[in-house]
Design a protein around this nucleic acid. Structure first.
Length: 552
RNA sequence: GCGCCCGUAGCUCAACGGAUAGAGCACUUGACUACGGAUCAAGAGGUUGCAGGUUCGAGUCCUGCCGGGCGCACCA
């Protein structure tokens, strides 16, 4: 019996109590079943009676008793206690609980896949680092979190497009191009230019591919360095992301917005909505009408588009491509954009609560030798994605970035990460998976296959703890998706790994017999439970983009 | 000044408004004739920054303070 099954059974008991006149009000459409922290509180518990007490006009414990009386007669339920202010603590019959292992193994890769977000077509934009340098550490957080979130949203039933916005049209790109040109000509990096070893590499690569470039007039040189340099920079960015296991469905070029006159079209749309005005020779969007603290310029008095104008056109383009929800992941230094972007969506006639979602991740800072590391793109002192992967591996880096709430700013201690010791919880979880595989290999050598299954033999407290933990997985995935919180999944996996390790160390729960003992049905039942655990750990790690090793 | 995020064990962090606030690391003490110990068991560690409020119930929601981080352009 899964928690969802149990929830349905409880709903039926509540409905029966209502029909019998024991309760006033209506039966709730949803009954939350949770896994109690304290094992004395049964396999599962629910607070449904506490929630019904007020509409029923009765003390919660009385409501709980009315529900419990009916629940006790249901199939698969061994014990129901009313506890505390009115919790229902439920213990399942061993066979009903144990049957979960079969459902997990049968569902295999699909265990945890659900439908809470079914029908939603989401565009998830993340990273979007400018192609003027390698992916720096701030964007790395979103690479890990964004990719994991995309996987989780898909598991929850949403249709997800991963998108990278490629700012290839701004003045930063011009500075990048001029820097390459100056360096290639053997001159110093301009005052407002970029520094770093990668600049020399790219400048030389552009010259090697375009041998005549340095004999062209300066402005034509700049054009070559802009076009070819950005291409090479972007190829490098894609390569480092691929090394991190992150791939995008769409790389969207800002230049295409300009080339296809999308900005003009967006302004026309906004003007039709009556939200545009001119002042001081500039064209403004009246975002203050929709909650921004000041209006925003779209076209400067010198005739140039602002970055915000491109944002408007880009948003409109996403909506026109059919996405009903536009999700953008930004760093904390961009939180001031939320109001103007929401106001922009409203200006188009959208309800930003429905169509636009901006996720803010607090900043990542680096620490070395106990001292914060100051980074400057100018000075070329940057830690980039590829460095991180080289130092500690993609699995550890991804896991370490994804296990913290995005609301939490994090310090990354490079020394600790480089040490690669087991104080990084990723090893704890991965080892649990490797252990399930090892146990499975041992079982095979004993001729214990996944055939004969006697769920009622999973009668140890450690069996029940492991089964209820496995049962929780689909709800954790759904919650992580709805709350946009992949770290919840990481913490769940750490907890599951701990429950599994304890189960493994329980003498009564062995999969293979000790010494010369014969293989029993109990051993065979535990082989199923071991396999189910293996499935959940693998599925969970996969959703985080972390590998689930067969051996370590 | 205004806005967003944070403040929980020595450290790093969890906790759909639920029960005695939990993990890991570090520390102390145990378990290797082992399902590979990257593990497990036990111990110790807390006035959830402060003060009010809301309710059956608050780390969580509301108000006000205190402290830290990050933002407040016709820059991108």
């Amino acid at each position: 019996m899964t928690p969802a099954d149990l929830s349905a059974v409880i709903r039926a008991s509540v409905a029966a109590a209502v029909d019998a006149g024991d309760l006033l009000g209506e039966a709730p459409t949803e009954v939350v079943v949770e896994r109690p922290k304290n094992p004395e509180h049964g396999d599962y518990s629910t607070n449904v009676a506490l929630r019904l007490a007020k509409p029923a006009g009765k003390p919660a414990r009385e409501v709980a008793e009315a529900i419990a009386a009916r629940l006790r007669t249901a199939d698969g339920i061994a014990k129901v206690d009313v506890a505390g202010p009115g919790f229902l603590n439920i213990t399942l019959a061993a066979d009903a609980l144990g049957a979960l292992a079969v459902s997990v193994v049968a569902a295999r890769d699909d265990y945890g896949v659900g439908t809470v977000l079914a029908g939603q077509n989401l565009n998830l934009e993340f990273v979007s680092a400018n192609p003027t340098g390698p992916v720096h550490i701030g964007a790395v957080r979103w690479a890990a979190v964004g990719d994991a979130l995309a996987r989780i949203l898909q598991a929850a039933g949403a249709q997800v497009t991963r998108e990278y916005y490629f700012n290839d049209a701004g003045s930063q790109i011009e500075r990048f191009a001029r820097t390459l040109r100056e360096v290639a000509n053997g001159r110093p990096v301009p005052e407002d230019g970029y520094a770093g070893a990668y600049i020399d590499e790219i400048a030389h690569a552009v010259v090697a591919a375009n041998p005549d470039v340095l004999s062209l007039p300066e402005d034509e040189q700049t054009e070559v360095f802009r076009r070819d340099g950005v291409d090479r920079m972007f190829a490098e960015i894609k390569e480092s992301l691929a090394g991190f296991g992150v791939h995008f469905d769409v790389y969207f070029n800002e230049r295409d917005l300009h080339a296809n006159h999308k900005l003009d079209a967006a302004i026309k749309r906004l003007r039709d909505q009556g939200n545009i005005y001119e002042d001081d020779g500039a064209i403004w969007l009246r975002t203050t009408r929709y909650g921004d603290d000041r209006d925003r310029v779209l076209v400067r008095s010198n005739g140039e588009w602002t970055y915000f104008a491109a944002d408007c056109a880009y948003y409109l383009d996403k909506r026109d491509r059919g996405f009903d929800r536009v999700v953008i992941m930004l760093g904390a230094d961009h939180h001031g954009y939320i109001n103007r972007l929401r106001a922009m969506a409203t200006s188009f006639g959208d309800d930003p609560d429905q169509t636009l979602e901006i996720l803010i991740g607090q900043l990542v800072s680096l620490v070395r030798d106990g001292e914060p590391l100051r980074m400057s793109k100018r000075a070329g002192t940057v830690i980039v994605l590829a460095d991180l992967v080289d130092a500690i591996g993609a699995d550890a880096a991804r896991y370490a970035l994804v296990r913290y709430s995005s609301d939490q700013s994090i310090d990354i201690d490079l020394d600790a990460w480089a040490r690669q010791t087991n104080d990084n919880p990723v090893y704890y979880v991965q080892y649990a998976h490797a252990r399930t595989r090892n146990v499975a290999r041992n079982a095979e050598s004993f001729g214990i296959g996944l055939d004969d299954f006697h769920p009622e033999l999973l009668d140890n407290a450690a069996d029940a703890a492991l089964l209820t933990a496995l049962g929780e997985f689909p709800r954790v995935v759904a919650a992580a998706a709805e709350l946009r919180a992949p770290h919840r999944l990481a913490h769940y996996l750490e907890n599951l790994a701990g429950v599994y390790h304890r189960w493994y160390d329980t003498d009564e729960c062995r999969v293979t017999p000790r010494g010369d003992d014969p293989v029993t049905d109990g051993n065979r039942a535990r082989a199923w439970l071991n396999e189910a655990t293996s499935v959940v750990l693998a599925n969970g790690l996969r959703l985080l983009g972390v590998s689930a090793p067969e051996r370590m």
